[in-house]
Design a protein around this nucleic acid. Sequence first.
DNA 1: CCGTATCCCGAGAGATACTG
DNA 2: CAGTATCTCTCGGGATACGG
Lengths: 114, 114
Amino acid sequence: MSPQGKNHEYICSVEAAINEIGGKWKSLVLCSLKDGTLRFSEINHKLPDISQRMLTKTLRELEKDRIISRKVYPEVPPKVEYSLTSKGESVIPILDSLCEWGKKYGASEENWEE
Amino acid sequence: MSPQGKNHEYICSVEAAINEIGGKWKSLVLCSLKDGTLRFSEINHKLPDISQRMLTKTLRELEKDRIISRKVYPEVPPKVEYSLTSKGESVIPILDSLCEWGKKYGASEENWEE
DNA sequence: CCGTATCCCGAGAGATACTG
DNA sequence: CAGTATCTCTCGGGATACGG
């Protein structure tokens, strides 16, 4: 995500927002973190269909955008905890709204020709 | 978008919502329609960087998901108008929130290694 | 336990040209 | 004006295997 990097003029800031929370997994990872800190394996457990590779990648992107924070415990075996930053907390209500919206207009009973 | 089609169990409905309004252009098209009905060329004018092909594709997907409606006037030259459905109207406040969020936490002043 | 490193594929997206 | 039709290519995303 955020392919444009720094110098890109957004027509509207929704674009910026979608870049940060869009994609296949970001919103789900954020939702899974909304009840508190989780370890890597715990997120993976909540999202069984995501691969380790994609989970890592998604977490790195969210971290880079300061939406989540990553805390490493220098132990053996490794322990890493992920949690929402204040920026991350602030987007949760919006994700909740989206969730409600998605539930209300179930993306499922319409038309599909294929 | 919505690659899974009908039979897909969502862990959370945010996923469904992101499928319907995510992607590079959908949110921008919806925002451009929030002040009322627009013709194809008018949307294109508001979003100069979108190609005709992508605009058509985006409009078709939004129409398929019943988020916008398409009205054709049988004239020469052709006239086609796009407007939000009630479902579309209902997602605008959420897009506005996203816009505010994106503006507040400018996706621009952080770190980039590359 | 928490990741990288590779390899790979298809969808998303761009450019350009053409048409009813 | 409002689209198709092609052609191309990047890159998001999946599968699998390996590493500290």
